[in-house]
Amino acid sequence: MDHSADSSGLIGAPGLSPMDSELVAAVLAGDDRAFALLFERYRPMVARVACRFFFRREEAEDVVQESFAEAWFALKSFQGRHEKSFAAWLSRITLHTCYNELGRRSRRGESLMSELSEEQVTWLTERLRDEGAENAVERQSISRDLAAKLLDRLKPEDRLVLILLEIEERSVAETAGIMGWSVSKVKVRAHRARAALRKALKRFC
């Protein structure tokens, strides 16, 4: 979508998209089209974050919609002045939405994906026992479904911390900022999360 050609009349230099802060100001002034622009601009980023936690398409879409709805109500709290800050702010909202949804699922006792199939158990067991496979060229990588089931065994905050630190490769300070935790809490949580996943895998040794 070509924002510069947008006929919403939003302020912006010719050929340049309106800044996020301007769009936010327009939304707060009552301009729904500005919010539509923000939605289009950041939908892929929000979807990428949601897909890390939810592997079913409908669940990820649900989280994307929920994140934008929450962002709409929280726009007044946005005080960014630079382009990047809105993305970080929205990313934080999305992560919190994912975290809340994971928590809701664990409270509901949903374990749709947590039970490993026999095949998966066998695969894990062989993988853990096979010392010779460390240098093997042909190695079958762990399937995403299996990975999801393993991670389902973790608490939502542990899963979130591991994903932020080890997949998105964020720093401890960034993770602390996103979660609203102290740096020491992030470190402790990460340590416990790694131990928990190790323990989950040890059952198949």
Binding site: R43, P44, V46, A47, R48, A50, C51, R52, R57, A60, E61, V64, L124, R127, L128, E131, E134, S141, I142, S143, R144, L146, A147, A148, L150, L151, L162, I163, E166, I167, R194, L197, R198, L201, K202
Partner: peptide
Amino acid sequence: ARLDRLRLEALRALEVSEAEVEAVASS
């Protein structure tokens, strides 16, 4: 060490492809 390696593999397996992201984003 083996457990840690498997742990990292499990986490990396969660990375989504661009196609999957696009499918969700363009719903």
